[in-house]
Design a protein around this nucleic acid. Structure first.
Lengths: 258, 258
DNA sequence: AAGTGGTCTAGACCACCGA
DNA sequence: CGGTGGTCTAGACCACTTC
């Protein structure tokens, strides 16, 4: 006895916002949940409602709900714990620029310590076209630029220039250095309401110039690794853009390609 | 009117080899299919049996079969084409060492051309402990070592030393250079029955020495990128190990971290 | 013991491909 | 048009966590 259940399986919109009507249910569901995470509706480390409950509130089958969650788990936004619940994951990818460099000198702790940070300069500048484009800012716009020196065990390893939209981040200019702290991403989250969930890095090689060599404690002409990074939020919004110069003799990188 | 279907859902072994009895059905199923691919039962570009059929032959539900295939698709071994079938994917990750370097000099074709290759030397050596360990060879073992120079548009860019187990690859020593060709992985597949599906790369920085500088056309002391690579087969078997020295001024790498 | 995620089955219908 | 993969539902039972 077949029943014509849910006559339009593909157009169930009971509680679901429109989204792109062409996308399958589970994809729209994924977006809805992602935006609820982005809106900090559940804070990191906290459990979201159970699959049963979410499926009920959205009027979809558990399987479909699970598919949406599956994807968010693969994307690293959620984490499942069998028997316990599904939790919002603190973005824990190694977002440190220091991931490109190694400090294996028998330091017992294996790299968990936070590198020191010294702010050298803060200023407001007119956004160059290329940076404005990367940050998706409208044409005539201003940037907050912060120049920092990063040290490891007292040794300077990386110089870093961070660019942020002046509109949202202007208060960084005057903020006390201790309040800024060594890690920017947690600051973005707690003070400015933006969570960094992924970064795009571009690496190349260069030579230390008269400006960077003394800061890094190397000779002019010594090899340096240039890391250009764009940080992105949950929904792909650009948050900051950086250019860093790191000591080449400390560079080490491992990947598995599939 | 519940029915006690399939009384022991988790121990269905109808057609399935034992595998690890603790693993869920879909995981064992994935391994079974992976090994059939590894055994070249279906060649690359060819369709495997339909989901219906595979589910029937293994005595599992279509959904479970799909889960196994889903995973193999994510791993890059299979490729779905809606309405057509599921195909064995030619391993198409950019396994070239040249992925680490850029050749943007307005070359119209954007990097699809195969870099040239010149064999400088071939020899049989006793395997050093570290390489033997990486290739998982038993203690006293021999290696085939091939030294090559890789060029791009006539310009030397990378020197490369490839190490392979002597047991399986001894015939490489005497093979005609044209028969070897510029690409090793297809050779492994067609002549030696091993498919490379993933690689592990480790990058660091060095300086050109008296041996490499003239080959690469740079001065002694100029920065070079050192790429150490382990190539792996479908089931994770090590196949070859390489160490390459590439011109630092050509180095460029992009990643997205999540 | 109750509640959560994890695995599995059965079956419907849709979208797409190719002959 | 028949066959293939893609989406979705409904529901059973298992494994684990938490109390």
């Amino acid at each position: 006895m077949q029943m014509p259940i849910n006559a339009r399986a593909n157009t169930n919109v009971s509680v679901l916002p429109p989204g792109d009507e062409r996308l399958p249910l589970f994809a729209r569901l994924r977006d809805v949940i992602a935006s609820r995470i982005a809106a900090l509706e559940w804070s990191a480390g906290q459990a979201i409602p159970s699959e049963q409950e979410l499926a009920r509130t959205y009027g979809v089958s558990v399987h479909t709900l699970r598919r949406a969650v599956d994807q968010l788990v693969r994307e690293g936004l959620l984490e499942r714990k069998q028997g316990s619940g599904t939790y919002v994951r603190r973005p824990s990818f190694d977002a440190s620029l220091f991931r490109w460099f190694n400090f294996g000198d028998k330091s017992s702790d294996g790299g968990r310590t936070v590198p020191e940070s010294r702010i050298l300069e803060r200023k407001v500048i007119a956004a160059p076209d290329d940076i404005a484009a990367k940050l998706k800012l409208k044409k005539p716009s201003k940037l907050v630029q912060i120049l920092r020196l990063r040290l490891w065990g007292g040794m300077p390893v990386v110089t870093e220039s961070v660019c942020l939209s002046y509109g949202r981040y202007k208060s960084l200019i005057a903020m006390d250095e201790h309040e800024v702290g060594p890690l920017m991403y947690p600051l973005y989250e707690h003070r400015f309401g933006q969570i960094v969930t992924s970064v795009e890095d571009e690496l190349s090689l260069g030579q230390a110039d008269a400006r960077h060599a003394p800061l890094l404690g190397v000779r002019i002409g010594d090899p340096v690794v240039i890391v250009e990074r764009l940080s992105l939020g949950v929904d792909g919004t650009p948050i900051d853009w950086r250019r860093a110069y790191g000591r080449g003799d400390r560079f080490r990188y491992r990947v598995r390609l599939t």
